[in-house]
Computed example of a mutant assay.
Amino acid sequence: MAGKKISPWVKGALDWGPLVAFFIAFNRLKDGHYEILGRDYSGFIVATALFVPLIAISTFLLWRLTGKLSPMQIATLVLVLIFGGLSVWLNDPVFFKMKPTIIYLLFAAILGAGLLRGKAWLQLVMDEAIPMEHAGWMILTKRFVALFIALAIANEIVWRTMSDSVWVDFKTFGLPIILIGFILSQSKLFERYGIEKPKADEDGQGDA
Rank of each mutant, 00 (worst) to 15 (best):
V46H: 05
D203H: 15
R64M: 00
F22S: 08
I57P: 10
F23Q: 04
W121F: 00
A113V: 08
G204H: 06
T101H: 08
F60R: 08
S185N: 13
F144H: 13
A25F: 03
G85N: 05
P100C: 07
G32F: 03
L147R: 01
K4C: 10
T48Q: 09
V158Y: 02
L111M: 12
M72E: 05
P93W: 04
D203N: 15
E128Q: 02
L90K: 15
K142L: 04
L106S: 11
L179R: 11
Q186A: 07
A146F: 13
D207P: 14
A135M: 12
Y41P: 02
G43C: 08
V166L: 10
F22E: 00
W121M: 08
Q205H: 14
Q205W: 15
W121A: 04
P131N: 04
F190P: 08
R64H: 00
L175I: 13
F173R: 05
A108T: 07
L122H: 02
W137L: 07
A25K: 01
S165M: 03
L111Y: 06
A120Q: 07
W137A: 01
T141Q: 09
E133Q: 14
V52A: 04
I130M: 04
F95L: 01
F170I: 02
D201V: 12
R28N: 14
I195H: 01
K99A: 08
M1P: 12
K5F: 10
H33T: 13
V125S: 11
I149N: 00
G174I: 02
L69S: 09
K68L: 07
Y193Q: 05
A47P: 00
K188D: 15
G32M: 05
S187M: 15
I6N: 08
F23S: 11
R143Q: 11
M138N: 08
